[in-house]
Write a protein that binds this DNA or RNA. Structure first.
Lengths: 161, 161
DNA sequence: TTAATTGCAAACGGTTTGCATGGGC
DNA sequence: GCCCATGCAAACCGTTTGCAATTAA
């Protein structure tokens, strides 16, 4: 009965990995699917409560961990003390992108410019580093840190006084 | 009396920013100066205790924060729940490099291969993203995640059984 | 049926804060 | 002497764990 190719790809991946499809897991997944933000566990929990008031924060954490482990979700650390979770919208990991992180208001902007060049450089680098350090590279992240449009102006005001 | 250009550059920067040169701060700095590892606050604290048994962990945190703020130290988040601190060895930020992070044992390897190409791509990307998103970029990080030499073999053993 | 999953409460671990004491300048 | 800086203890906050009850398969 497994692998019936009935639901979305992540359901199959759950099954294949031997995990159960439950209401809380479906709910967490639907929340991730319906946002383009970079949600923390707490963010997901709050949204989940609106649909299922009896869901527990613990379950949200465990679902997010599980999804991360089976490669359906990617976990990011932007250095503000809480992890963010983002859906891998495609089993083949299309939609590769990176992040601009505002050091002041912590907002995050996705970008995917110059991906062709980036991918080429990364491949080259990965190859060299694998050989040099015998390191098996699974994935990479590029974060730009700075000030978003609004926060630049806010900073400017502070300097003015 | 300020700005006498007597001590190392970071002492001057402390002075210029209006902060005091104290024993704990010198100790923390000397520890960072004498390692090539990526130390956590706790790591620094343990090393500091060996020299000054009355130093407090809080002071280590505050020193590291201060150094980070005045640009003498860089703080990294590799996603294992604790921040790492690394000395900027040069006021002009030479020695730019990035990291390989082992997802299993959390060890970190520095690399600076292909820096020429990387810097070019990053400059180009920064320029475009600044214009496109009105984002003022201060710095960036590139992290490769994967398995180090030892951990690949450990994983292999696990699979064998 | 029955083992995986859930929700609660309590623990955990890294980091921060309040406050009285101590030490640069 | 004036404040900034320190050390201690306690608070904080995101995350994890133990455990009994629930539920998917």
């Amino acid at each position: 009965m497994r692998n019936r190719m009935c639901g979305p790809w992540w359901e199959n991946r759950l099954n294949d990995a031997g995990f159960r499809l439950t209401n809380p897991r479906e709910l967490v997944m639907s929340i991730l699917r319906n946002t383009d933000k970079h949600l923390s566990a707490e963010d997901v929990y709050v949204k989940a409560l609106a649909v299922n008031p009896s869901i527990g924060l613990t379950t949200v954490y465990r679902s997010l961990d599980l999804f991360t482990q089976i490669g359906v979700v990617q976990r990011f650390d932007f250095g503000d003390g809480k992890a963010r979770y983002e859906l891998n919208r495609n089993p083949l990991s299309k939609g590769h992108h990176h992040h601009l992180v505002c050091m002041r208001c912590k907002s995050i902007i996705d970008y995917n410019d110059f991906m062709q060049e980036e991918v080429e450089l990364m491949k080259k680098t990965e190859k060299a580093l694998s050989k040099k350090h015998h390191f098996k590279i699974m994935h990479h992240t590029i974060h730009f840190y700075g000030l978003c449009n609004e926060c630049q102006h806010a900073e400017q005001k502070m300097i003015d006084y």
